[in-house]
Design a protein around this nucleic acid. Structure first.
Lengths: 145, 145
DNA sequence: TTTGAAGTAACAAAAATAGTTACAGTCGTT
DNA sequence: AACGACTGTAACTATTTTTGTTACTTCAAA
């Protein structure tokens, strides 16, 4: 798979929201975020919708609509974001069924499954160690601010 | 990206070779492996070519051609295979440059880069813990053999 | 010199992601 | 009650990546 930038875009969006709220804003719109990410607002709305279902953010509709964080930036980890996006495993099994006759072909998937599960666990653990607050701090700190 | 099955196919191929050699064979051909994986021999040859460049296997050309493992199955880890395939990072940055004006957009990539690097390290560590010999053992053990 | 397979280029097919357009649903404001 | 601004989605196109296929060249043993 091409490596996937969904986590990057989603984290960028939440970091923008966090900064916006810190500056006193109540709500953030998809258009504001799209301006920073330089993409189409619908792309942002799609990601936001998934994060809303996961309880990371909440939306307000009607006039004066937008999103707000549902948790403090310290309480949202990159793992939470990745899980919200329904991220798939790092490695996949064969796209097509291998030979039913060959013993290697029959046994290779059960043999690899636990290894791949451990890999995904390791990814989750690593992502869990970084919060949205960490990302925002490092993001703003780049300029020496 | 769709999750990528290249590591699965490459590992399947090497496991097949290891079993073939254990059964007394000197050489293994792409057609034999393709039969077990149920794919086109060229797909196998492409993967084998990359693993050959990484020194995991060696090829013999001419009549009576084929591949043989260049190391013992105990000395080849899934990490070696993954590295040989030039695996890309689990997560990618934005496909397009984000806004040059916005401080979040400017700082988010340097902030995420070390996190993503740690994730890739964790993946490598996890893959390094399993050898081709482990995979072959578990593969054949599935039937209780 | 014949032969079987590696090696590789070129291209088609399939799948996933990203980008775009369009429109219905919601709800303060006027 | 109508308006306006923005969410929520569906539908479609474009782009990128991976996989599958055909075809051809190179190689070395028999």
């Amino acid at each position: 798979m091409g490596a996937n930038s969904r986590l990057t875009i989603a984290t960028h969006a939440l970091a923008w929201m966090a900064l916006n709220e810190r500056s006193g804003a109540e709500l953030t719109t998809s258009e504001q975020i799209a301006g920073s990410v330089k993409t189409n607002p619908v792309v942002i709305r799609r990601l936001m919708s998934e994060m809303g279902k996961a309880g990371l953010i909440s939306s307000q509709r009607g006039a004066n609509a937008g999103w707000r964080l549902a948790k403090a930036p310290e309480a949202i980890s990159l793992r939470d974001i990745n899980d919200a996006l329904g991220a798939e495993a790092a490695f996949a099994m064969h796209r097509n069924e291998p030979s039913a006759i060959c013993p290697v072909a029959r046994g290779i998937r059960p043999a690899l499954a636990p290894v791949y599960a451990r890999v995904d666990d390791a990814v989750s653990r690593e992502l869990a160690a970084t919060s949205l607050a960490d990302v925002l701090r490092d993001t703003l700190g780049v300029d020496g601010a």
